[in-house]
Lab assay of single mutants.
Amino acid sequence: MQRVNMIMAESPGLITICLLGYLLSAECTVFLDHENANKILNRPKRYNSGKLEEFVQGNLERECMEEKCSFEEAREVFENTERTTEFWKQYVDGDQCESNPCLNGGSCKDDINSYECWCPFGFEGKNCELDVTCNIKNGRCEQFCKNSADNKVVCSCTEGYRLAENQKSCEPAVPFPCGRVSVSQTSKLTRAETVFPDVDYVNSTEAETILDNITQSTQSFNDFTRVVGGEDAKPGQFPWQVVLNGKVDAFCGGSIVNEKWIVTAAHCVETGVKITVVAGEHNIEETEHTEQKRNVIRIIPHHNYNAAINKYNHDIALLELDEPLVLNSYVTPICIADKEYTNIFLKFGSGYVSGWGRVFHKGRSALVLQYLRVPLVDRATCLRSTKFTIYNNMFCAGFHEGGRDSCQGDSGGPHVTEVEGTSFLTGIISWGEECAMKGKYGIYTKVSRYVNWIKEKTKLT
């Protein structure tokens, strides 16, 4: 034993070699072989497995989906700052455009905790909710729209109204504003409101030439003092309507412009014939205590009207009353817009006519005020429907199939267009061939041609 100890002390290297040989010859039971080890760690190889990531292109799944990435790591994937920024906006807080917040056709661009709407022409605001041009839906104005110097929408209202708090709607500024039905039992019968379409306001006024200088022999019209197929109006439903009495009662109609003036057809009036105007009328054979009678003290036909040349060209006249009318729910003026808007309103496509005229061709006159909704007829169809001249200051309205029309005794009465609950004068009943005849239409004086003249002559002093 002493000898062994001496050998170990003198030859430590020998001992180490012996131990190493023993270990190498022993069977290893701690580690699995290569094949079995792979069965336990069965993990798919990654895209760049075996390579240094710093030297390969980034992978979106590896960089940002398996674990949260930084902007720089995302930049490695896209290799483009702009594309990385677009991805980053949604990656950080989701897609803010998912709810489609942009209105009126706006395009949404996502941002971090926010979004941006790219608005089409005519709109602005956070969600493109603000109209900035009158060309689109009248700028959301209830009545009139004008573009300011910086191309912003400025709404306005006709006389007797003021802008509401929203700067879009119009509200009454006087007790009985024009064009409004205020009798409670008839307010439910107000005709369907007309909503502004998209309009090209630059070209809204037709490029028409008034044929002022045409000389033409007097034409022989049949029954051209021209509501057939209409309905009984309720008291106060058309408070701007008046009836004219002269040699015979209810020979023509008219509309209240203001307390002192009536507008009617020029062919209705004769110099030297006494005319009485009755406002607030409903049943011409009954006294309903809503009527107001006034005498006409002055007749002003349009300066281009000449019955000797043509009885229905420039067929418009103004009547001055001896005493002002007292405005109330049964006696209310009709609204008159400017030339541009009167023309736009007419193009809405349908209007209402009213009167006490004959209820059928050569038949009896109506006792109760009649009204009828009539569609506008395109000019080409209008011209083809008659052998008589249709001037540019006239328009056609009615039904091709016949059966409904204005008729004798309705002449001078109103053709009105309702705009968001307020009625505007767009025409004056003038003439036609018979009444409600198939293929024939009622012919009306186009008020847009005469609004400046009306307003100039009827100013209240």
Rank of each mutant, 00 (worst) to 15 (best):
M8Y: 12
T16D: 03
L23R: 02
S25E: 05
T29H: 12
K45V: 12
N48P: 15
G50W: 07
V56G: 15
E61P: 10
E61D: 08
M65Y: 13
E72V: 15
R75M: 08
E76M: 13
F78M: 14
E79N: 11
E86S: 14
F87A: 15
F87T: 15
Y91H: 15
V92C: 04
C97G: 00
E98D: 09
S99F: 09
G105K: 04
D110F: 05
C117G: 00
G122V: 01
E129A: 04
D131C: 06
N138S: 05
E142D: 13
F144C: 00
N147M: 11
N151M: 11
C157T: 00
L163W: 02
K168C: 06
A173G: 07
F176P: 01
V181L: 08
S184Q: 06
Q185M: 08
S187L: 12
K188Y: 14
K188R: 07
L189M: 06
R191N: 12
P197L: 09
V199P: 15
Y201G: 13
T209Q: 12
D212E: 13
N213D: 06
S217D: 12
T218H: 08
Q219Y: 06
D223T: 13
D223W: 08
V228N: 05
D232L: 06
W240L: 00
G246F: 05
C252A: 02
I256F: 00
V257W: 01
A266S: 04
K274F: 06
I275A: 04
V278S: 07
T287M: 13
R298Q: 07
I299V: 07
P301N: 08
N306A: 07
I309A: 12
N310M: 05
Y312W: 11
Y312V: 07
I316W: 01
P324W: 02
L325W: 04
V326Y: 10
N328Q: 02
C335Y: 00
A337W: 00
E340N: 09
F345L: 10
G351R: 02
G357M: 10
G357I: 07
K362T: 09
L367K: 14
Y371R: 13
T381V: 12
L383F: 15
L383Y: 10
R384E: 11
S385P: 03
K387F: 05
Y391E: 11
A397R: 02
F399R: 04
S411Q: 14
H415R: 00
V419A: 05
E420T: 10
F424D: 01
G432I: 04
E433F: 09
C435G: 04
M437G: 12
K438M: 07
K440A: 08
K440Y: 07
Y441I: 10
N452F: 04
K457H: 15
L460E: 10
L460H: 09
